[in-house]
Design a protein around this nucleic acid. Sequence first.
DNA 1: GAATATCCTATTAAGTCTATAGGGTATTAG
DNA 2: CTAATACCCTATAGACTTAATAGGATATTC
Lengths: 141, 141
Amino acid sequence: MLSKKTKYGLKALTYLASRSENCPVQISEIAKHENISQKFLESILLSLRKTGILGSKKGKGGGYYLIKKPADILMTDVMRILEGPIAMVPCVSLNFYEKCDDCPDEATCSVNKLMLMVRDANLGVYRSHTLADILVQSKEA
Amino acid sequence: MLSKKTKYGLKALTYLASRSENCPVQISEIAKHENISQKFLESILLSLRKTGILGSKKGKGGGYYLIKKPADILMTDVMRILEGPIAMVPCVSLNFYEKCDDCPDEATCSVNKLMLMVRDANLGVYRSHTLADILVQSKEA
DNA sequence: GAATATCCTATTAAGTCTATAGGGTATTAG
DNA sequence: CTAATACCCTATAGACTTAATAGGATATTC
């Protein structure tokens, strides 16, 4: 299940990317437009800023903005920041590898084998798409 | 993150599939061999029986056994039973579709668009593999 | 220097997952 | 027949995670 954090984060990024001008946008505006609790969104945007996806400006006229162009923001990075490891078990994780304590041997573990394939399938999607790719044109009359 | 339920369930199925004879195996034997809490495993095997993956036999000499051949047990079925919907959001689920209450229009939702691709990637893996495919030969000296 | 908007920590409420407990029921062996 | 065996089923408790809220600190602009 996708966490609300990830869902809200993606929606916020999409909203920022869809604006013609890349000037600072206030949390409150994003929250209102995307139906998100403002305070919760605040913490999400903060983590996106700390990890180099967003920039921010304080004070009047401040807000958040994309640091890179949407076409340069990979889904792999976004998903790792928001949702955590892409692998469903630590023993097949590229960036967060950990041995299972209950499993004597990964080489003969069927869970490992299956989850390795799943990880690669997901990586395939995330690595080949950027924020620009998931923008959807709103239909005009 | 893969739930322990799914992990244990897969290990139990693998254990059953790896046995040469398809005769009933006691819960206790599986639990011991795979390092799983016996009572927890009991409930997992029960749900696999109720959904037609396993059969069971009561009384002395009883236990659980595979109803079909490993090559006929699709990972899609197993994963849906153990882990639930394959889609990460209900609005892209084939079997458990539900509209997001906070999303005005799926057609213009970037989360929907991304998760649709992820779902298809995962389905691709699960649909093309059976229990037989994830069995791993243990190395013999 | 007052208003604005982000920054940061702590906390709580809700929900889910994991595991355990305890007894019920059907089957088999002798 | 009967006693042992092993699955069947429900309920519940504890741990953990997630979602949301609260409250104030800090920096910037006009």
